[in-house]
Design a protein around this nucleic acid. Structure first.
Length: 527
RNA sequence: GUCCUCGUAGCUUAAUGGAUAAAGCAGAGCUCUUCUAAGGCUUUGAUGCAGGUUCGAUUCCUGCCGAGGACACCA
């Protein structure tokens, strides 16, 4: 319907001799202004002429068109809403999918925990966002691969292996010259695989970490198609840098190889790609990774999710990549998120201690009678409800709040809708007749927003913004709860109305289920 | 110091340059003989400051104030 109106407005503009005007078609915030509205009249200053054309070519499903304070508003017909409910039920678990990105090969990299270190709440955040971005892309027709890139070599591993304790190693590295040397030595040995005893310790530790990670992924509902490791791309990245030293990269202090991004963009800075020990830094490895990914999966688009503390660093990296492989840099999109900060109790992040994903999940779980699906949903909702990029102030109590904005609220609305439609199926046998329900009632708010779901899926993809979906699903849940509270859905004395109401419940169930799936939030069958 | 991001109700957040800035929590009041009250209804309350662009600015531009981050061998 939206595209129908867009095309029509475009034609109307042409008919009055305006072809260049930039206009929008959207839903007015206030439903009394109609179901769709366009500013084309204001932009072109020809509202009356446009209205005349639009009325002459009024599409099926539009009841009336009128001008209010310059905006041209479209009111949809009762039949349109009825049919849209039928369409939702017909398409079921497919409702909301589109072919916008058909044929596009997309790879999404997220979570990225490091073996030998904790899987902390930052990884949880990256996971929730990445998972939903991947699923949004899938729903928009892309062929999506999920990737996890893990730092299995590098200074952090050396620090962890030095005395089997990352925190200890990290501290000693800063304060003790002798320890620093030892750690650097370990780093080199790991990289070269030159010490059999260390190799064994390394392999065992890595394996143990990966097993732990798999357990968490299972809980979170993530299944990666690719697990990339820094150790796989280190040599390759180093080679790339060496091959391009002279023109793109330069020799720096102490034999390090650097990239001076300032030469290409005055707002960027210098970074070291190969350190004076001759080892590739994260920068060089990441460069190798971009190409390595492409060899494994020739992507059209590569989305990388990280924390926002690496924003400026990533710009430099993309600048360097752009010098070597311009087409890969072009296809890469960096999406960064803020920090997850807890507000309450002993789990406060202000103490500076690392909070593991596991401990947060367990703490939230205790608050919801041990229901893991509800706990995961509560956490993911909190992460996905706001626009990506800012820090999240995570209040455990609010995350499990049963009233208002929460994962629990969405899940409960879904369970309720599902429960009532199942009950309806038992009482009114010809459930398939739902689509032909005849209702004399005016449209409820619920009907007026359910059909918008596919538009939201599309926009969430265009802007890479899962929070559009969260906001929308919360609105749907609220509208359904209102409907549920004020209407007796199943009434054996009024079968035609019951069909209509059950159809609405069924459509709500479908939209909530599909929406939760896209977000990667579990949809429990019962609560 | 340079660059980047962010300042919306008491709190946590929405808003694709559009109409009366949208929710939840907290506060005040109401609501289960009904399909799950983990619910629903009513109500109080906000765009950091100063300019600019525009028919129209929370959104774009400039300056200021405030918070966070990055800036050579960590990732």
């Amino acid at each position: 319907m939206k595209t129908t109106i867009e095309n029509l407005v475009k034609k109307a503009l042409e008919s009055v001799g305006v072809s260049e005007a930039r206009f929008t078609v959207e839903h007015p915030t206030n439903l009394t202004f109609g179901d769709y509205t366009t500013n084309a009249g204001i932009v072109s200053k020809k509202a009356p002429e446009l209205l005349a054309y639009l009325e002459d070519h009024k599409p099926e499903g539009v009841e009336k068109i009128e001008i209010k304070s310059g905006f041209i508003n479209f009111y949809l017909t009762k039949e349109f809403f009825k049919e849209s409910i039928g369409e939702i039920i017909e398409r079921g678990s497919e409702f909301g999918k589109n072919k916008n990105l058909k044929g596009q090969k997309t790879i999404v990299e997220y979570t990225d925990p490091n073996p030998f270190k904790e899987f902390h709440i930052g990884h949880l955040m990256s996971n929730a966002i990445g998972e939903s971005i991947a699923r949004i892309s899938e729903w928009n027709g892309a062929e999506v691969m999920k990737a996890c890139y893990q730092g299995d070599v590098g200074m952090h591993v050396a620090k962890a292996l030095w005395k089997d304790d990352y925190a200890l190693g990290s501290k000693a590295y800063e304060e003790d010259e002798q320890a620093k040397k030892e750690i650097q030595d370990i780093n080199k040995k790991i990289y070269e695989k030159s010490d059999p005893e260390l190799n064994k310790k390394y392999e065992e530790g890595k394996e143990r970490s990966l097993e732990e990670f798999e357990k968490i992924y299972k809980k979170l509902g993530t299944k990666f198609d690719f697990n990339f490791f820094e150790s796989e791309v280190a040599d390759f990245g180093k080679k790339l840098v060496e091959e391009n030293t002279g023109e793109i990269f330069e020799k720096g202090e102490g034999g390090a190889v650097i990239f001076n991004a300032e030469k290409f963009d005055k707002y960027l800075h210098i970074r070291v790609f190969i350190n004076s020990e001759g080892l590739p830094t994260y920068e060089a490895k990441e460069l190798g990774l971009a190409k390595y990914k492409f060899e494994k999966y020739p992507y059209d688009k590569s989305i990388v999710i990280t924390g926002n503390e690496v924003n400026d660093y990533f710009k430099v990296l993309l600048c360097a990549l752009g010098q070597i492989y311009p087409e890969l840099a072009q296809k890469t999109e960096h999406l960064s998120h803020g920090m997850l900060r807890l507000t309450t109790g002993k789990m406060s992040s202000r103490t500076g201690e690392v909070i593991t994903a596991e401990s947060l999940i367990e703490t939230v779980k205790e608050k919801v009678k041990g229901d893991e699906q509800v706990a995961i949903g509560a956490i993911k909702y909190m992460i996905l409800r706001q626009s990506i990029g800012n820090d999240i102030i995570f209040d455990i109590e609010k995350s499990v709040s049963t009233e208002g904005d929460s994962g629990v609220y969405l899940q409960y609305a879904y369970v309720r809708a599902k429960s009532v439609t199942e009950k309806g199926r038992l009482i009114i046998r010809d459930f398939d007749l739902l689509k032909e329900s005849t209702s004399q009632q005016d449209q409820t708010l619920l009907e007026k927003i359910l059909y918008r779901f596919p538009e939201i899926v599309l926009r969430a993809c265009d802007d890479l913004s899962p929070n559009y979906l969260v906001t929308y699903l919360t609105e749907v849940s609220s509208a359904f709860n209102n409907f549920y509270a004020t209407t007796q859905i199943i009434n054996p004395n009024d079968v035609p109305e019951s069909y209509h109401r059950l159809a609405l419940s069924k459509a709500t169930e479908i939209v909530l289920k599909n929406g939760l799936d896209i977000l990667g939030i579990p949809a429990p069958e019962r609560m």
